[in-house]
Design a protein around this nucleic acid. Sequence first.
DNA 1: AATGTATTTTAGGTTAGACTAAATTATTTG
DNA 2: CAAATAATTTAGTCTAACCTAAAATACATT
Lengths: 223, 223
Amino acid sequence: MSEIITQSIQDYLKHIYELNENGNTASTNDLAARLNIAPASVTGMLQKLASVSPALVVYKKHQGVTLTRAGEKAALEVIRHHRLLELYLVKALGYSWDEVHAEADRLEHFISEDFEARVAEALGHPERDPHGELIPTADLTMPMDESCPLASLRTDETATVKRVSDDDPALLRHLLEIGVLPEVKVIIENYSELDGNLTLHVEGQKSKIVLGTAITKRIFVEK
Amino acid sequence: MSEIITQSIQDYLKHIYELNENGNTASTNDLAARLNIAPASVTGMLQKLASVSPALVVYKKHQGVTLTRAGEKAALEVIRHHRLLELYLVKALGYSWDEVHAEADRLEHFISEDFEARVAEALGHPERDPHGELIPTADLTMPMDESCPLASLRTDETATVKRVSDDDPALLRHLLEIGVLPEVKVIIENYSELDGNLTLHVEGQKSKIVLGTAITKRIFVEK
DNA sequence: AATGTATTTTAGGTTAGACTAAATTATTTG
DNA sequence: CAAATAATTTAGTCTAACCTAAAATACATT
């Protein structure tokens, strides 16, 4: 009875997974905003995903949605595809790190398990994609992520950049320019109570930079 | 007003192109057989493709269908994607020539123009795919094909294999085994009036082989 | 030219996945 | 705690692309 997991369903599951990562359930509205779909349509799909067998999500009216193990597996499969593709596009076809997201977002739904395995092999079974995001393993478990948002650091703290959000090309180009890349060390020179801005020194760069929370919330570091 | 060319439409156009290659118009039934779609559904789609603006096909009731220049361009785009992907899968990811068709058939619809250009570059702008089929150029023209079916040769003729159909993995495995590959020379030892079988000697092989028309019609050679 | 067969078209129906407008339920705030 | 606001759900539509059954047309043969 195992149902067909369409491209559309894969997108729902992927975004539910990401919204669940902070321990929260995903709300209808948040999902709708992420998927660019009307909230009413999302409700319909969530009801369907909950009633399919095996169920892919646990859904209670007005209380948001979480993934079942079956839903999580399907989500991790798509995320694995996405991140392997991103790295492959950079390493094998010379894409820059701000160009890969859109391409991977389409192809992730259509590559075979064979293709996935060959790409993983060609890349030497990598742990992270070009933005530092962890790649789910072949047996569909997500490695532990120890990182926290750069925005949570305070004056005089030191940390290593681990990953950055991959979905905003303009942000990625900016980060490349100012040298904020995975595995680069940063020192917080100042935290502003007023606007949350961080002034920081980036390893290998001459001048200090100031970043607002719109940016620092999307950069993840380990202390 | 240029309409969206969906995956489904791309499939129709690709198969119409292939059916038109021998100079014939494509019949509703032939198309239905190729696409694995009921003839009635094909009629509906052909009417739509003819009435869209710009028209993608020229369609007259009961008289089959041909492509307009716009339809041909769209078809060549898909075929270029397919053949570049096939070659890339073999050269870069170690696929064998009987494994690539299914993967390329899915991905051809979803790669970007950027991806296409990078793959073409990585392959050195190749002329032919792993089965010897000609790859449409970047400006969407199909190179001249001078080949004819092996089935049309007669006793004592000599020829070079140029290409073989890519869509039957079992046939491809068999041809690999008997050494019938692009650029290999063959000599016709005998033609049988009765069943059309050809007995031939393949360059580099010890023993002669006998092939029926189901096979020899799918192998193309130049004399 | 008439008739049988094969091909093609029409008509009506289904499914997935979206939409909008209106109704309902929760949450926040005065 | 009631009213306002925000979030969610229901109900009814729409489109693309398929389906089947029946009708119509074309073609092939006597």
